[in-house]
Nucleic acid binder design. Structure first.
Length: 952
RNA sequence: AGGCGCGUAGCUCAGUUGGUUAGAGCGCUACCUUGACAUGGUAGAGGUCGUUGGUUCGACUCCAAUCGCGCCUACCA
């Protein structure tokens, strides 16, 4: 085996181990195991590139998966990707654009073929990147939402829901994206506050008695007005209700109607223009008043659409006459706005224009302003599905972690609207519906089936619906469609319901809620028992990462490192707003003057785990990952030390490949050995508890502290005097070597779920010596606490040793004595136990505190002038002679005394309060008393010491 | 407007049923290249836990109010 380099180099091992694991089939679920454990990956978009959210999300999932696999559960992490309808179609359309083509030039079939082609070329991108993260996904069963099986599941669900009346077709107002030419769901619309205007327009009364003034943020929609509404309780307008207005520019007349629900007399002028075909609220008003003759008599019953699918003013239909003034035909909505405002102004009908902030709805993909638009669409009737989905959470069959997300879930589920599932794009699952020339709809698995079922002749003309389904429709089926549904497969049997869903809060509505509804409907069971909701990964200043801010970090750049110039190029290329490039470049140069160094996957994963406190976003700070890179190096070098001392040596491990496999040799464990073994047991429990409770930050912290502060800082140092002492017995050396290597081997298994690569690499070297055999650490049992190795006595004894050593180090540190300089030490007021301990651990004390000599003073011995440290009641003295500055020691003692004084005062005050003594539990009071006694003893001791020094 | 969450060391964050001298990492100061590791070691400085009240023998922790910040949902045309 190769020797270990002085510095840990992740690149040398990560790729190699991943390939080995995958080639050997370790990621597939085992055949045995009592319990099954399953996580469905939130399918990334095939178009996608790995971002920090994926990094975070997948680190958590892989940690859980590896933990359960090691625990012996039958463990599946289902791999796959999402066809991401709109996003993917846009990517390929952009490619066509570069060739000066549109998708319609190719035609539907060719265009879809082109997307498949593209998917074959670049679709593997995201899975390659997931592999870099070490994700132990079951790639052999990777699925794609558009593959044959999943398409079958989609069709099946659609048909069953249709047959039950839970899917229907209807003409409604929808969110229309005029750039993409498709309907989108409420969720795909993001509203943001933007600066705009409020136009006050005059509508003259038909009776010539003046006018009403309406205020609007969208003056161009006045072409489609069918009424002006006022509040019936509004004194100003009550008497005008029922009268008619001359709708300017159109030559049409519209009524004044009363609508209490929608009109707030306090807002604006108290008069609201009603444009039912281009505003959701107005549509609701129209529905309430559509039967009033002044409205129903209007063209289209008052529901007048004025736009094309591009949101430009449309031409009149043949039978409409001059419904929409020709003058505006073909104008884009904003162009029309300008013209209409100008025309109103010219006619003296524009009263004023105010600055006004308003919420502007934009499509999340296209960024285009969404237009409420009247179209035929397919809907899922959601209330009957939502009801059991709400109950599943109420009853605790599904648990949110953290718990408070259930409120968000309820809030949405209780106000849920029917789900518009049809999209006017080409890439996706085409709706299995056919129409005849009379407009009758037939839903079925295929055209042939439809003809058969409805007795339609082969030459009876049928036309298939052009639309495809919302991408989230197929995602909603993911937990069971990937396992083979509608077939009753073994995998479905074994792994549904899945164990936990790990996801960001941003897709609770898009995805989580819909999976719950569909799972309950078609599997008659919840899709998962727990939902672990994590926060967003932000930059180090807490800003959301985005291309336009230029603060995006790419996980692979953190793993591999990236030079400054390359990073700048990456951040500034392909920008929507190229004018920001300069600023982004400056900002990047300032923040990463030397680019980003390579940290390796394990350090990245450990960072994500350490930052994964529940329920809050994480700010990703480079300092943090650097620290954990150093941690990897620490673990690596601790191993170098261990290997150096155990390789080829007798470690007292039977069956180990050491060349010393004689029958059980005598073995002796020191208190230090017992201590570290005891600490290890407690750490095992802490880590297991933390992972089970989704506290990955606690798990990471427990591992970090044990490794660095206990194993490395203390145990490794304590092993040195034993291993390097020619006088130490072979049995003692054997015991120490055995402990060194076994604790390390345990620690590696404990750490493996979070840091798979370094632990595997090291384990391969360490395991044989520790007497553990196996092909991979991946399939080794996760360490469990061994009660018998918990040793409180050893922990107490080691605490004494540490206090002794720390006391001397502190004096040296504060008195400017070189740490390496051996000093003579005197012990005063030492009990029998103290003396015994000092004797027994003399080699530890000498080595770690660099003591020259240790001498016990009898009670009547004269104490020489010294610097003092306390270990319990014992005084550890370092004589001043030549070493120590008297004034400095006085200051040091005064400071220490001050601190103790404070402490004692506070405790005394507490104890002199009769209410405290009366009411507090006895144990608490006793604890305070003990503390006071201890503090007072220490205080006395230091005070006499101070007097002594002062009198010199 | 409603809902959720957050304000703890210069920075990033722990602190789970109220009882610690309020912790960690990074950063900072001083010293140290000792045979695992300078991606290191040793010692140290640094906090009236946003503010104000209340409950309690005792509050970072519970309650109320208030200020600041973030997010989500619904919005006034």
């Amino acid at each position: 085996m190769r020797s270990m380099e002085k510095t840990y180099d992740p690149h040398a091992i990560e790729q190699r181990w991943y390939q080995t694991w995958e080639a050997r089939g370790y990621f597939a679920p085992g055949q045995s195991g009592d319990a099954s454990y399953c996580i469905m990956i939130p399918p990334p978009n095939v178009t996608g590139n790995l971002h920090m959210g994926h990094g975070f999300n997948n680190t958590i999932m892989d940690t859980l998966i590896r933990y359960h696999r090691m625990k012996g559960d039958k463990t599946l992490w289902q791999a796959g990707a999402d066809h991401a309808g709109i996003a993917t179609q846009m990517v390929v359309e952009r490619q066509l654009e570069a060739e000066n083509k549109k998708r319609h030039d190719l035609g539907r079939e060719k265009f879809i073929e082109r997307i498949w082609e593209w998917k074959r070329e670049s679709g593997g991108n995201i899975s390659r990147q997931l592999r870099r993260l070490g994700s132990s996904l079951d790639w052999q069963h990777e699925r794609f939402t558009m593959d044959e099986g999943l398409s079958e599941a989609v069709k099946e669900v659609f048909i069953r829901l249709y047959e039950e009346g839970l899917i229907y077709r209807g003409k409604r107002l929808v969110n229309w994206d005029p750039k993409l030419h498709t309907a989108v769901s409420d969720l795909e619309v993001l509203s943001e506050e933007e600066n705009g205007h409020m136009w006050h327009m005059r509508y003259p009364l038909s009776n010539g008695q003046g006018h009403l003034t309406v205020a609007t943020t969208r003056p161009e929609t006045m072409l489609g007005d069918c009424a002006v509404a006022v509040n019936p309780g509004d004194e100003r307008y009550r008497h005008m209700i029922g009268e008619l207005l001359e709708l300017p520019l159109t030559g049409r007349r519209i009524p004044i109607i009363a609508d209490e629900e929608h009109v707030d007399p306090e807002f604006g002028t108290g008069c609201v223009k009603i444009t039912p075909a281009h505003d959701f609220n107005d549509y609701a008003v129209w529905q309430r008043h559509r039967d009033e003759v002044t409205i129903s008599a209007q063209a289209h019953g008052g529901l007048i659409n004025i736009f094309t699918i591009d949101a430009a003013v449309r031409e009149n239909e043949a039978d409409e006459g001059a419904l929409i003034p020709e003058r505006y035909s073909g104008m884009d909505r904003y162009e029309a706005r300008k013209q209409i405002v100008a025309d109103l102004q010219e006619q003296g009908l524009l009263e004023k224009i105010d600055e006004h902030k308003l919420m502007v709805p934009r499509g999340d993909r296209s960024g285009a302003v969404i237009e409420p638009f009247l179209t035929d669409q397919w809907y899922v009737k959601i209330a009957p599905l939502a009801k059991p989905a709400i109950e599943a959470v109420e009853s605790g069959r599904i648990r949110f972690v953290p718990d408070n997300w259930k409120n968000t879930y309820y809030e949405w589920m209780r106000n849920i609207q029917d789900w518009c599932i049809s999209r006017q794009i080409w890439w996706g699952h085409r709706i299995p519906a056919w129409y005849d020339e009379q407009g009758n709809v037939y839903v079925g698995r295929s055209e042939a089936e439809v003809r058969r079922q409805h007795n339609l002749a082969d030459d009876y003309p049928l036309r298939r619906d052009e639309d495809v389904l919302d991408t989230w429709f197929s995602s909603a089926l993911w937990p069971f469609s990937t396992l083979g549904w509608p077939e009753q497969t073994e995998r479905l049997q074994a792994f549904y319901p899945t164990s936990v869903l790990v996801t960001g809060f941003d897709i609770i509505f898009f995805w989580v809620a819909r999976m719950i509804m569909m799972g309950l409907k078609f599997m008659d069971d919840v899709p998962f028992h727990e939902v672990y909701v994590h926060g967003l990964v932000r930059d180090s200043h807490g800003e959301k990462m985005s291309k336009s801010k230029g603060n995006v970090l790419d996980p692979t750049d953190l793993i591999d490192g990236i030079e400054l110039e390359r990073l700048i190029e990456k951040r500034t290329s392909g920008m929507m707003q190229p004018q920001l490039a300069k600023k982004i470049e400056q900002q990047t140069r300032k923040e990463f003057p030397d680019g980003i160094p390579s940290f390796g996957t394990d350090a990245l994963r450990f960072t994500f785990a350490a930052l994964a406190a529940t329920g809050r976003d994480i700010k990703f700070d480079l300092g943090r990952i650097e620290g954990y890179r150093n941690f990897c190096n620490k673990l690596w070098n601790a191993t170098r030390y261990v290997m150096m001392n155990v390789e080829g040596q007798d470690c007292g491990v039977s069956g180990a490949k050491t060349g010393h496999s004689e029958p059980p040799a005598k073995l002796e464990r020191s208190v230090a050995d017992h201590w570290i073994l005891s600490r290890l047991q407690k750490t095992k429990q802490a880590v297991a508890d933390a992972i089970e409770g989704y506290r990955f930050d606690h798990a990471a912290q427990a591992i970090y502290e044990f490794t660095w502060n206990e194993y490395c800082d203390w145990y490794l140092e304590l092993s040195k005097p034993v291993l390097n002492d020619d006088n130490a017995s072979q049995a003692a050396k054997r015991g120490t070597r055995r402990t060194l290597v076994r604790v390390l081997e345990n620690l590696l298994r404990l750490t493996h779920p979070i840091m798979p690569f370094i632990t595997e690499e090291i384990w391969q070297r360490v395991a044989p010596i520790a007497g553990v055999s196996g092909e991979t650490i991946m399939n080794q049992p996760f360490p469990t606490q061994r009660e018998s190795l918990i040793n409180e006595a050893a922990e107490i004894e080691m605490a004494w040793v540490m206090r002794f050593i720390l006391g001397i180090r502190k004096i040296k540190g504060e008195m400017n004595i070189a740490p390496g300089k051996p000093v003579p030490v005197l012990l005063a007021n030492a009990s029998d136990n103290d003396q015994a301990l000092a004797e027994r651990h003399r080699h530890f004390l000498d080595f770690l505190a660099r003591t020259e000599s240790i001498e016990v003073l009898a009670a009547d011995d004269q104490e020489p002038e010294s610097a003092t440290a306390l270990v319990g009641e014992m005084k550890v003295l370092i004589p001043l002679a030549g070493l120590i500055d008297k004034e400095a020691e006085i200051k040091r003692l005064e400071k220490e005394i001050g601190r103790l004084r404070n402490d004692a005062d506070r405790t005394e005050k507490k104890l002199s309060n009769p209410k405290f003594v009366d009411k507090a539990p006895e144990a608490v009071v006793q604890k305070e008393r003990d503390k006071l006694a201890e503090t007072q003893k220490a205080l006395e001791s230091l005070q006499t010491q101070l007097v002594k020094i002062q009198n010199l």
